[in-house]
Structure formats: structure tokens, C-alpha cells
Design a binder for these strands. Structure first.
Lengths: 197, 197
DNA sequence: ATTGCAATGAGACAAAAGTCTCATTAGAGG
DNA sequence: CCTCTAATGAGACTTTTGTCTCATTGCAAT
């Protein structure tokens, strides 16, 4: 069904109702089934399945809608040094991730799942939000780094800032959010400094 | 049922058959159901459920048995500086991970899945192999770091060395294994240096 | 307002996942 | 070798998850 054909308004409304209901339930820390979301959205189970093949798919979309940091306001009033700007970005990511943790874990799990099902060694196409933002953070100081150092630093920072690091801190190291933040900031400073030479 | 009561041999054999079958299937990158594992192990579905409540529980046990790097031979002939020893550890992890990539991705996906199902905000108990090894790598030079720096460094290195970093490199950044190694080594040097002061 | 067809709801159906019972089989001790 | 009973297999049963059909509803163009 095309975007304009049929009754696009009704479709968008139904879809939005489902996403809203899912967001509401997830915000309560619940892990709803597709049936529960349908009920909360006041649509039938069959209709819910028409829009999303599984609760996972729905939760992924829910998270994507909620969580998209914007470069412009992330760096608003950012300090005048590269590490400070990266820390600002880290803070934005952290707050986004903590409020959307369930959805992000779901997305990561989904992506890993897919990487195992996918035929022909296809990698799961996973959108990369962090690299553009990391580069934006470093951009004003780009000339302080050699091109190679800039690229290496960007990539290394991608290990520190993102869902995967959150998972390491919480599930593997089992440290508090505050401790995790401290470690990230220390690592950011260490790496930005090292790249500067 | 106690360890010694009944027929312990038969039980151990059945259990081992299930774990072996699961390992075999996982090594093929498959994501077996408990029924498939039972079939591969030549036991009935009911028996498989008697040993493991779910495919997840079985898979967790399975990967525990897989490749656990041994501290003693990892650092055999390691260079005489902390960063060099950490790099040695990184190399060991890398080779282990590349040969067990499917299984490790599976484990990670599993663990993430469980973290969403788990009641009462329970974190999935995930074994932490890397921290002891990282600390072992740094141990001979422990006195060169302040206690706080040592702990922070250990934790930061846990972000660089492990399955999650592999996933970032492959799925998010989509860089080659060689490039990934280069970035990791650079990050290791940068952080070890920074912690030294 | 009328009308056509897209979207929906209700519920039957199917497949997957897990539980339970009971008869059979085969270890381990005598 | 026998016996006892723990472990197993077979399969019925339940729940959960997802699909499909078809009648009904209600947008939106006329």
C-alpha cells in the first residue's frame, strides 16, 4: 500500500496510536506483548499485527522516534575545547540512553539476532548515529589533529559512546551510572589528549 | 535430585550430550530451538526440558564451556610494559572472538533479551571474564598507577576488549578486522599512558 | 448525501513453546 | 544375574504468538 493511496490519515493515526501506547507501557518499565499494546491503543490484535510483525519491531520504531539527538542543540553552549564538546555529546547520549534503555537493548538484541540469521554473511544494516555526532563534536578543532589521528580517535570514541558501552557497564562491570560516566569522561580526555600530538 | 543419588553417570552423560549438541549447532551460527538441540543430542524433547528450562539457559551454559583464555599462556613471553601486556591480551581476545564470533553474538543477544524479560529490574548475571584478565595484564605494574587510576583504567579497557567492541567495529563502524585492531591498540596505549601519571 | 473500497474487528486456525502423565528402559547395588 | 527405581520417551494438553478470512465500518472523493 502506497503512502498516498487509500486512507493515509487513518493509517497514520492507527500507527501513531500503537507507537504511543507502546511508549506509554514501556515507560512504566513494562515489557508489553503486542496484544497488550493493541488493547492499550484500542485497536484489535489483528490490526496491530498488520502494522508491526512483532513486539520487537514495534519497540524498535518506538525507540527510534523518541531518541534522536540533534547536533544543533547538543553543542549549544558547549565548552571551548574538544574533550569538553565530546563530553557534552556523551552527556546527551547518556540521558537519551537511560530514558530509552529498554528500547535500545531491544534494538541491539534484534540487530545481533539478525546478524545470525542473515544469509551470505550479510551484515545487519544498522544506522550509525554516533559517528556524525562525534565528528561534529571534534569538527571545530579538526586542524589540531592529523587526518589519521582524527579518524582513529573518532572510531575509538565510538566504543565509549553508545549502547554497547552501556551494556558493558551495566551487565559486565555492574557499576553505577555515576561511575560509568566518570570512566567514560576519563577515557574521552585520555584519548583526545593522545590524539592531539 | 542430589549429585550422587540415582544414576549420576547417565545424568551427566545426557547433560553433556545436550551441551555438546548445542555447541555444535551454535558453531554453525544457527540459533537452535530446544527441540532441535534435543534431536541433535538424540534425546527426547521432554528430557531436554528436564535439564534446561529454556534454550536460553542451555546456551548460557554452553558458552561458558567454550573458549576461556587462560591467563598463564596469554602472557607467556609478553613484553615488559603494561600497554604491551594489554595488547597481548587484546590479541588473545581477538583471535578467540573471531573464531567464536557466532556463538558470542548469540550469547550477547541472549543476555540482552533476558535483561528485558527479567522481572524486578534484575540484571542478567553475565560472567565477566575480561576484568580478571585485564587486571592480570596490569598487575606487574600496579604500583605505577594510583589505586583509583588503576580501577578506572581497568574499567575503560573493558570497553575496548570484548564482544561489544567487536560489534561496534563490525556492525556500526563497518571497518576491517585490521583497522579495528589498530584502533584498539591505539586506544589501549592512549589510556594506559594517561593512567600512568 | 451517496458510494466505493481501504481499514478494521472478530474469531478461526496454525505453529511454537512449555508442562504433565504414564508406561518403558536401563543403571547401580545387592 | 536380579531387582529396584531413576531416567527416559511418547504423546496429550495448554499457552503464547502469529496468520488468515471475511463481514463490517467509516474515510474521502464525487
Amino acid at each position: 500500500m502506497a503512502d498516498t493511496a487509500g486512507r493515509p490519515n487513518q493509517r497514520r493515526r492507527t500507527r501513531k496510536d500503537l507507537l504511543d501506547a507502546a511508549a506509554r507501557l514501556m515507560k512504566q518499565g513494562r515489557r508489553p506483548t503486542l496484544e497488550e499494546v493493541a488493547e492499550a491503543a484500542l485497536v484489535s490484535r489483528a490490526t496491530a499485527y498488520r502494522y508491526f510483525p512483532s513486539i520487537e519491531a514495534l519497540m524498535v520504531e518506538t525507540t527510534l522516534d523518541v531518541a534522536a539527538p540533534n547536533a544543533d542543540d547538543v553543542f549549544k553552549g558547549a565548552p571551548g575545547d574538544p574533550a569538553g564538546r565530546v563530553e557534552k555529546l556523551d552527556a546527551a547520549f547518556e540521558s537519551m540512553m537511560l530514558t530509552n534503555e529498554a528500547g535500545l537493548r531491544m534494538m541491539l538484541a534484534q540487530s545481533l539476532q539478525r546478524s545470525l540469521t542473515e544469509e551470505g554473511g550479510q551484515l545487519p544494516k544498522r544506522q550509525n548515529r554516533r559517528t556524525p555526532l562525534i565528528e561534529a563534536a571534534l569538527a571545530p578543532y579538526k586542524k589540531e589533529f592529523s587526518p589519521a589521528a582524527f579518524q582513529t580517535l573518532s572510531r575509538a570514541l565510538a566504543l565509549i559512546i553508545g549502547t554497547e558501552a552501556l551494556v558493558v557497564f551495566k551487565d559486565v562491570l555492574q557499576v553505577s551510572d555515576a561511575e560509568a560516566r566518570k570512566v567514560r569522561r576519563w577515557a574521552i580526555r585520555a584519548m583526545v589528549e593522545a590524539a592531539r600530538k
